[in-house]
């Protein structure tokens, strides 16, 4: 994997769209990998009894997927400084979570990317990720 350099990125750069299929395995394995054992993330019957359509992604996973979306694009040497997310509709098992993103600010190698993660019900997560990229070769 190659890392983008600060030289190659500028305000307005669009990230390639990407999406994740939210299989029950995905929802459950990420919930457990983030140590979140709340039943609505792995117990379908209980989630439905509580008025949800199905089990759904936990927030720690949403943060992880937003991070992954940006580092998949930026490469391994990018350093993530922060992720601010506004949470919207739930991301249920069986749905698809699609990301799109745009670089909205650029200051001395420190970039802000606006990210939007949508499911069939609407926006699941919208927000910004800040990152720094290694300086590019001059010229």
């Amino acid at each position: 994997m190659r890392t983008l350099t600060a030289h190659e990125v500028t305000t307005g750069t669009a990230l390639p769209p990407s999406s994740v299929e939210l299989t029950p395995t995905m929802v459950i394995s990420t919930a457990l990998a983030t140590m979140d054992f709340t039943p609505v993330h792995h117990d379908t019957a209980l989630a439905r009894a509580q008025g949800s359509k199905d089990i759904f992604l936990n927030i720690l996973t949403t943060m992880g997927l937003v991070e992954r979306y940006v580092t998949d694009w930026a490469g391994p040497a990018a350093v993530i400084g922060g992720i601010n997310v506004r949470l919207g509709v739930p991301a249920y098992a069986g749905d698809r979570l699609s990301f799109e993103g745009t670089v909205v600010s650029d200051a001395d190698g420190r970039f802000t990317v606006e990210v939007r993660g949508r499911v069939s019900l609407g926006d699941h997560a919208t927000g910004t990720v800040t990152l720094t990229l290694p300086a590019g070769r001059a010229g």
Partner: peptide, 30 residues
Amino acid sequence: WLAAMGDANPVYLDQGLAPPAMAQVWTMQG
């Protein structure tokens, strides 16, 4: 965590670093 997220970024295991978004994971009660 990387496997569950489908995150192939090699930097974490190569350099012994945790993905930053895992911050909260370490102190989850489980």
